[in-house]
Amino acid sequence: MKVAFIGTGSMGSLLIEAFLRSGALYPHNLHVSNRSKSKAEMLALRHPGLHVAASNAEAALGSDIVFICVKPHHFPEVIAEIRSVLLETQLLISITSPVLISVLEEQVPAKIAKIIPSITHSVHSGASLCIYGERVQPEDRLLLEQLMSSISRPTPIKESETRIASDISSCGPAFVSFIVQQWAKAAAQMTGISMPEALSLSAEMLLGTGRLLTEGGLTPEQLQRRVAVPGGVTAEGLAILEERLEGVFLSLIEATQRKHEADLAKLAALFDAVKPAANSSVSPDHGDLESDRPEML
C-alpha cells in the first residue's frame, strides 16, 4: 500500500513517526513531500526507504491514501496542484477541521475523509476523530480505522461535531496541561515542593485518572464521590473549583467556535479562487509532473 503525506511539519511528521513505530506502515510504503524539502529529507535519513517526492503531485500520484497535513490556508493551493493526478479510487484525507468535506468533494474526484489527530498519538494514545464523505465505502472506513487504531482510538463523528470534539481531543492536551502548569506553579510558590516534583505528580495523576474514567468504568461524578469525603479537604477544593470555574468552559467553547467560523469564511474565499472552471472536468490528467509545477506546500 502506498501512502502519501503532503506536509511533514509538526503533525505530519508526528503521524509518520507514530505509524512507523507502531509497525502499521513501513518506510517503503511512504511517499512524502514538503515545501521545505530538507524537512522531508531529514525524515528519510531517520527512516531509510522512505521516498521523498519532488512535488506534491508526484507524492499523490498512484497513492492509495493521501494525507494532507498542511495549514488550512495552504489547502486550496495544494488541491489545485494535485487535482489532475487524483483518481476516484484514492482516499484523500484532510487532518484539519475548517476544511469541509463537501468543498473537497467539489474540487477532486477522490474519496474524501477527515481525520483529526491529536498529539497524544505520539504515545499511541488518545482519540482520532473520523468523518467520512459520501463517496467513502465501508471497506474504506475499515481500512482507515484499522490504520488509525494502531496509534489511537478511532472515533467516528458527524462533521457538525468536529469543532467541539476537536476542542476536547486535539486542543484538550494543551488546555489540560495549562491547568496542570498553573496548579504546579501555585503549589511551588506556596509550599516547599519543587516545580518539577509537582509536575511529575500531576502527570502521574492525569494518567491514572484517565484510566479510571476509561478502563475503570467510573464516571466523573462517581470518581469525585469516591475521593471527596463530606467535610474533607477534597470537598473544600471542589467547592472552590465549582465557584471559580463557573462559565470558564462556556467562554472557551465560544472562543474556539468564533475562530472556527472565521476560518471557514476565509477558506471559502480561498477555495473559490482556485475552483475548477465550470466547463472543465476533474478527471485526472497524468501528464508531465515537472512542467508548470507550482511551489510545494
Score class of each variant (00 low, 15 high):
10 S>W: 05
142 L>I: 10
271 F>N: 07
167 D>A: 15
50 L>A: 10
270 L>S: 08
45 L>C: 05
265 A>N: 08
291 S>Q: 09
111 K>S: 05
125 S>G: 11
116 I>D: 00
39 K>F: 07
267 L>N: 09
75 F>V: 00
6 I>A: 03
211 R>P: 00
83 R>Y: 02
90 Q>I: 10
67 F>H: 02
278 A>T: 10
284 P>A: 07
80 A>V: 00
288 D>M: 09
104 L>W: 00
70 V>I: 14
255 A>C: 13
275 K>F: 04
244 R>P: 00
153 R>E: 09
237 G>N: 07
22 S>W: 07
172 G>Q: 12
19 F>Q: 06
99 V>S: 04
45 L>F: 10
28 H>R: 15
289 L>S: 04
59 A>V: 06
17 E>M: 06
293 R>G: 03
252 L>E: 08
21 R>D: 13
143 L>T: 11
294 P>L: 09
147 L>N: 09
200 S>L: 10
167 D>G: 11
279 N>P: 01
266 K>F: 03
104 L>F: 03
213 L>F: 05
65 I>P: 00
278 A>D: 14
30 L>D: 08
275 K>Y: 01
175 F>R: 07
57 A>L: 11
277 A>T: 03
166 S>A: 15
131 I>V: 14
273 A>T: 05
5 F>R: 03
239 A>W: 02
14 L>W: 00
1 M>R: 11
82 I>H: 01
258 R>G: 03
247 G>A: 03
278 A>V: 13
233 V>I: 14
241 L>I: 13
159 E>N: 12
4 A>H: 03
251 S>G: 15
137 Q>H: 15
67 F>S: 03
267 L>D: 05
201 L>V: 14
110 A>K: 03
174 A>M: 08
146 Q>A: 12
276 P>Y: 06
133 G>K: 01
126 G>T: 04
196 P>W: 10
247 G>E: 02
24 A>Y: 01
246 E>P: 00
31 H>A: 12
17 E>Q: 13
208 G>I: 10
62 G>F: 06
221 E>T: 14
57 A>E: 03
147 L>A: 05
1 M>E: 09
146 Q>C: 14
271 F>D: 06
280 S>L: 10
16 I>N: 02
255 A>M: 12
252 L>D: 05
103 V>E: 04
142 L>A: 14
51 H>W: 08
40 A>N: 02
138 P>F: 13
